[in-house]
Every structure is written in C-alpha cells, then in structure tokens.
Design a protein around this nucleic acid. Structure first.
Lengths: 122, 122
DNA sequence: ATATTTACTACGACAGACATAGTACGACAG
DNA sequence: CTGTCGTACTATGTCTGTCGTAGTAAATAT
C-alpha cells in the first residue's frame, strides 16, 4: 500500500563482497585463491578480501543458487590435489545486475550527505 | 611492516548511517524525529531510516564522543515533554571527514567490479 | 630439510541493522 | 469522550556478514 520504497537496505556494502566475487566469476570460473589475488590486483592492493569472508561467501552464494561448484583435481600431477572451482549461474548474473542498480542508487543517496569540502572545526 | 594497507573495512556502509546523521547535525543540533524527516526529504523518500537504527546510532555515537546530547523540554507547552537534542562534537566532525575520504576510496574500489552494462545471460 | 606459498575448513565472537512491542503526550474527528 | 493519528522516544532480542584465530595439508622455493 502506498508508494513502494526502492530497496535500499542499510547493510549495503556487506553484500558487495558477493558482487565483487560474482564479477570475477562472470569472466570465467575460478577458485578461492585465484579470486582473492584478482581482487587484490584489480584494486591495486587497495582491497584485500579476508579468506574467511571469501569462503563463507562461496557457501552462502551456492546455497542461494548464485554459483555452482565443482571439484577439479588430480588432473595435474595425479595426486589428490583438489581445488573447488565456482561458476556463476543465471541467477547469479541476475543478482549481480540488481546489485549494480542498487549501488547506483546508494551512491546517489549517500552523496547527498557529502557535499564537497570538509567540515571545519568551529 | 610492509606497505600499510589503506583502511577499507568491508562493513563499509553499515556505518554510513552515522555519517548521514552527523551531516545533518553539522548544520544545526537536532533530535530524532527531525533528523529522520530530513533524511527522507534530502533523499526524495529514497532512504527512510528505521527508528531503531537511528536511536541506537545516537547512543553509540555519544559513547564514541561524536555527539553530545542535551534535553530541551518543557519550553513548548509547559508539560513534561522532553526532547533529546544532539549536537556534533569536534571528534564527530573529524570522524565525518574521515568517513568521506573512506567513501571516495570505497567507491573507487567497488566500481572496479562494475563496468558499464549488464551481464548478459548466456 | 624447512620455510613459504597455495588452498582450504572449522569455530566462535562481534556489531550494526532491524523487527516487534510498548509508553506517553497532544491534536483533531466523529 | 473515545479513538486514531502524529510526535518522540525506550526496550529487547534476533539475524547475518565479517573477521579473528587456528588448524590441516599438498606444492614449491630456498
């Protein structure tokens, strides 16, 4: 009833780790360590994702159907080397696109509270 | 040791409610209901802060020394009507300025993962 | 040989956001 | 004069993404 409010949750960035990961995966399937390196490189070391954050994002996103995992191992040296790769799904792409729109809105909102220039003391 | 990493926490936006409130308070001291209305208006109803979020931000920020409260009551109708006003402190201004810088960085980082255009399905 | 890098998993804690509910006063309608 | 609506909060508890800490184990470098 009434005007629909546009969906700006206040925990905006929290979920943006997922968005970053999905972006990397939209190029090609990848696995934890690789993704972490790519995030570091893409941001010129400005953002370094924590391992636990990364891996918990995987399980969450797989549960939500945004990614699919598959184990590719044993093909290199014949040993039991197991890497878990993740691949983005259509739902994941959709989610990513929504998040991008949300980000535009968020930016707009937040920047209403940030005119140029510092607040001067006194 | 090594290069200092610039402080991008991943819970970035969570704390931006505080920043928005501080911006409002940088204009003039105010109280809960007023601030909530101003946030609504400034953002064209795009962002409506939840009451509990707002008031818990007050107590947190007062504990952190970013705002000071004072009760101005009984002057309106003569009854025991108490309004708690908040005023920004110097520490609050400093915090706000830092948050603005952090925001610029965050924007830069996040947008590395958002080139123009949607991800197409398939 | 051993230290470092790679590649994870497990567990627990924290804190901001939010849902829900309740209090209390004033104005104004029916 | 009873009820609803707007104002102005307080209290309590839950949820969840993030992060600290720690441990495992194979692969590679020194």
């Amino acid at each position: 009833m009434g005007t629909d409010q546009i969906g700006i949750s206040s925990d905006v960035i929290r979920g943006y780790n997922d968005t970053m990961i999905l972006f990397i995966l939209s190029r090609e399937p990848s696995y934890g360590y690789e993704i972490s390196k790519q995030i570091r490189q893409l941001t010129d070391e400005k953002y370094i994702i924590k391992e636990t954050t990364l891996y918990s994002a995987f399980t969450r996103m797989e549960k939500n159907g945004y990614v699919e995992s598959y184990v590719a191992g044993a093909d290199v040296t014949g040993s039991g080397k197991k890497r878990t790769y993740y691949r983005i799904t259509d739902a994941g792409r959709e989610y990513y696109n929504e998040k991008c729109k949300e980000w535009q809105l968020t930016k707009e909102v937040v920047e209403h509270f940030m005119p140029q220039g510092d607040l001067k003391e006194e």
